[in-house]
Design a protein around this nucleic acid. Structure first.
Lengths: 144, 144
DNA sequence: ATTGAAAATGATTTTTACTATCATTTAGTC
DNA sequence: GACTAAATGATAGTAAAAATCATTTTCAAT
């Protein structure tokens, strides 16, 4: 999905649910869509405040829940006790390698796996909205 | 890995590290190896207390950390804010479908995906110890 | 443009799961 | 059986997520 489409989807979602758009919300959405990392709330708040210093933690928290509910953001937990947010990719899905030593997160994508997942889900009579594939281990620098 | 092998691995691990075996620890390990679900600490504690009512939360917590460190248990987070524990499967790996409405967790396994993962990791120069594949969506009962 | 109802905000509190602490008990070696 | 190190369990501490609430803002209907 392209950025413009995401914003349109979001607009539609807000309108359908009778929600309002505010300057804070817009700022948070803007900042979030500019990230390309798996950002946590604290960091997101920090960046938003560079634009608009009066935005509160709760608003960022709630806005991210909103984006997640609408489907333009995804929550992730990589096991370090923090929830991270990521936007859904422009077209294809990507997955993660997490180095358990240095914490480095790498992305990859593979269409074959995507396809297999769909196949499996169909067999199980399960409708997939979203998925997570994470490989945990050692990156090239950390193994020896 | 067979149950007997897991217990042996655990024994070896304890001995190497100079750790001791206690009645509490044994009870927890016993109960854990009998579960076939993705159990959280609270539930595990409850079951252990049916055998030995004096076992404390902290002991269960620490024992599960121990089992995780030794490699016979795996910690998982499915996004509901709780850490769940699972034993490593007897032979092959399995993955999960999680219904976001009713919370039902189903398991599946697919050798092709396992194989593709290894291939991908090799290309990226990454050594995989462990992985998680989770499909989030609606089970047959919850979609309509 | 004004108004009024509903939603949003931000500061704060509450909750919850996880982790750390510490005095006491226990295990296992000598 | 004594000694030393580890384990236990009760509880305190933490940190992130979720809830609360008085005040402010949005936006549709006038």
């Amino acid at each position: 999905m392209k950025l413009a489409d995401k914003k349109e989807l979001l607009q539609k979602y807000l309108h359908e649910k009778g929600l309002k758009s505010t300057t804070q919300r817009d700022a948070i959405i803007d900042v979030f869509f500019k990230t390309n990392t798996h950002i946590n709330l604290e960091e997101l708040l920090k960046r938003v405040r560079r634009k608009n210093p009066k935005v509160g933690y709760a608003t960022v928290y709630r806005t991210m829940k909103l984006l997640t509910g609408c489907g333009v953001a995804i929550e992730r937990q990589f096991g370090d006790g923090q929830t991270r947010y990521e936007h859904i990719p422009d077209d294809s899905h990507h997955d993660h390698c997490i180095c358990v030593k240095c914490g480095k997160i790498m992305e990859f994508e593979n269409q074959k796996i995507e396809h297999l997942q769909k196949e499996i889900a169909e067999k199980m009579n399960f409708t997939v909205n979203n998925h997570k594939l994470e490989l945990y281990g050692f990156c090239s620098k950390c193994r020896d």
